[in-house]
Every structure is written in structure tokens, then in C-alpha cells.
């Protein structure tokens, strides 16, 4: 079944970065930024990738847009227009065509827009690169899209520069730029974390509406479970390069199984002074993912860990029923 519907299929994806050992020395250690992860994103559905800083969320996003080349593993994008492609093997024209179907929205709208280019230049650039339309058509298309993302009237925004816009407006420009080529899949890397509360919801709602209208799926990268709850049908929790739990959003939030997910959920503050959270203590802090030992990544902090966890490799991600996957020996 999943063969037909899955838009993105990631299998055993690995990305290691060498740790610099000094000039003229071959590096012997590697940062295991993304360490053997697999997931699928169905067409028309969005996956939230949640975890703490340094867990490999952003690296995954960059791998899926081929801004990084994977060390090993398979990334398959199944685009109705171009059929199934293996991302790692793409080169030249095929890679350029792929960029027309997969886009990325970055976290910081203050840094992701070129300050010397007008909004029109910025939003139309993907069209120019892809060689779509002539200048009149592009202008028309950009204007329509700016109205769609809530920058109205478009004529008053087309020839302005990023510094004339507020953070929320800039992020809307970044969304327009990502969507102008009609991609089927967009990686959104913390698109609202820099925005104020009253602006954030507007941008989130816009992204959801556009997903429905333009049939786009997101890989939504965020550290904020509450935001993921509103944006995604499914959530995958990452911990030091591994996906340790994934399930449908409400299932994950109401019945977390992995001890790390439980601790993470219990640590999220709730906007209600009367709500008593049950703190689930875990030990220590996140360790560096440099050549981690071959055991559960969460072993050193886990309240459930025992000798079995110590002596066995990182547990596989297993289906515990109803598509709720967990990587833990103790669940």
C-alpha cells in the first residue's frame, strides 16, 4: 500500500561528518549526525521531526533537499510528474529538475533573503533557474502568489527590499519563494520559531492552507511539540541521530512510549497555571554524537536502562501496533 502512496521514502539514511584532527591528518572520528534513519511521508500528509538541538533534524532536512550528500542510504522521492527518483544518484539536469519539485524554507527570514534583491527578484529566482515562463508571466505568477501568502496588495510588495518588511512578512516571502515552482514536497526548518506569537499562528495557518490547496507535503522540523501538533499528521522524535519513536501526532502526545519522548513531553510548559505537570526526571545532558558506542543512544540517561541495553546495539525501530514505532528494548 505504502508503495503507491508514499511521496518520500527514506531508508537507512546516514550522514557522518569528519571531526577535524588537524592539518594534514586524516580524521579518525566522525560525528554521526544522522545515523541510520528510515521514514516515509505520504502524499498530502506532513511529518514533524522533533528533537533537541544537535539531534540531527536540520541535517536530515538538508539531506532531503540534497544540500548535503548522504554518506549512505536511500532517499526516494516519488513525484507524480517525474516518477520515482533516487536522490543520491541525481546529477546535472536531473538534479536541477529535482530542485523544482522539492524546496526548503529556512528558520531565519532575516538571513535567508538576499538584502540586495527585491521581493520580486527573490521569489521569481526559482522560476528563472528552472527556465519557466517569460518575464510577464513570471511577474503575474509572483504577484498572484504574494496575494496568496497574504502580502496584499502584491503591487506594493513586488519591488520592495527585505529590510522594509517585518519578520512575519519576510517569512511569507520565503514561503512564496519555496512554493513558486509548485513543489510537491517542502522541507520547513523551524519556519516559525523566530516569529512572535501573534504572527506565528498566521504563518502556520497559511502553510496549512497552502498544503491543502497546492497539494504540498511538509517535512516540518521543529523543537516545539506544540507547534508540531498543529502542523503534522505524524511526528518522529529524534535523539542523537536516531529516530527513537514515531507515531500519529495525537497518539504520540497522549501515549508516548519511549522514556525520552515521555521526558520531553513532560518538560513542555503548559499555558495554564493550574496544570500540574508530572516531571519525569532523566539524568545528565545530551552527549556528543562523536563515534557513539554501539548501544542504545539514550542508555546513559535512561531511567529504565539495564545490562541488556548496555550489551546490545541500538534497538531497532519496531511497530508496537497501529503504526506506533518505538526503538526501545524496555517498552
Amino acid at each position: 500500500m505504502s508503495e503507491i502512496t508514499s511521496l518520500v521514502k527514506v531508508e537507512h539514511l546516514v550522514k557522518k561528518f569528519p571531526v577535524s584532527a588537524g592539518l594534514f591528518k586524516t580524521s579518525k572520528s566522525f560525528i554521526h549526525a544522522v545515523d541510520d534513519i528510515s521514514f516515509e511521508i505520504d502524499s498530502g500528509s506532513s511529518l514533524g521531526l522533533v528533537g533537541e538541538s544537535g539531534c540531527g533534524k536540520t541535517t536530515t532536512g538538508k539531506l532531503l533537499t540534497r544540500l548535503y550528500d548522504p554518506t549512505s542510504g536511500l532517499i526516494e522521492i516519488n513525484d507524480p510528474r517525474a516518477g520515482r527518483v533516487d536522490l543520491a544518484s541525481l546529477k546535472g539536469q536531473a538534479l536541477k529538475d529535482f530542485r523544482g519539485r522539492v524546496q526548503i524554507i529556512f528558520q531565519d527570514p532575516y538571513e535567508s533573503l538576499n538584502p540586495r534583491r527585491t521581493i520580486f527578484d527573490t521569489v521569481s529566482e526559482p522560476l528563472v533557474v528552472q527556465g519557466l515562463g517569460n518575464i510577464t508571466q513570471r511577474e503575474e505568477q509572483v504577484a498572484t502568489l504574494l496575494e496568496t501568502v497574504g502580502l496584499t496588495p502584491a503591487s506594493s510588495f513586488l519591488f520592495r527590499y527585505p529590510h522594509e518588511l517585518s519578520g512575519g512578512q519576510r517569512q511569507r516571502v520565503a514561503i512564496a519563494r519555496a512554493l513558486v515552482v509548485n513543489p510537491s514536497f517542502v522541507v520547513a526548518d523551524e519556519p516559525t520559531s523566530m516569529l512572535d506569537v501573534s504572527i506565528r499562528i498566521g504563518v502556520m495557518q497559511l502553510m496549512m492552507e497552502l498544503a491543502n490547496e497546492m497539494d504540498v507535503s511538509y517535512l516540518y522540523i521543529t523543537h516545539d511539540l506544540a507547534v508540531a501538533r498543529y502542523m503534522c499528521q505524524r511526528i518522529a522524535v529524534m535523539y542523537i541521530g536516531k529516530i527513537i519513536e514515531k507515531a500519529a501526532t495525537e497518539e504520540l502526545l497522549s501515549h508516548p512510549l519511549h522514556p525520552y519522548t515521555r521526558a520531553l513531553i513532560s518538560a513542555v510548559p503548559v499555558p495554564d497555571p493550574e496544570f500540574q505537570r508530572q516531571a519525569i526526571p532523566i539524568k545528565g545532558g545530551v552527549s556528543a554524537p562523536i563515534d557513539p558506542p554501539d548501544q542504545c543512544r539514550f542508555y546513559s540517561r535512561c531511567p529504565l536502562a539495564d545490562s541488556f541495553c548496555r550489551n546490545n546495539p541500538h534497538p531497532p525501530l519496531e511497530d508496537k501496533g497501529g503504526g506506533h514505532f518505538v526503538a526501545c528494548y524496555k517498552v
Binding site: 506569537v197 501573534s198 499562528i201 502556520m204 516545539d224 506544540a226 498543529y230 502526545l253 499555558p271
Partner: peptide, 21 residues
Amino acid sequence: LMSAFPSIKGPKKSLTTLPGE
């Protein structure tokens, strides 16, 4: 401000936007 704040606890209430900036 409160209706614009997502929470992970309780029923998923719909969030409302505040127009303007």
C-alpha cells in the same frame, strides 16, 4: 495572545490569529 498559543495538553483547540502586526 492566549488563543494563539498552541499547547500539547488538553483537547486540540483551534488557534485564532490576530490580524496585523
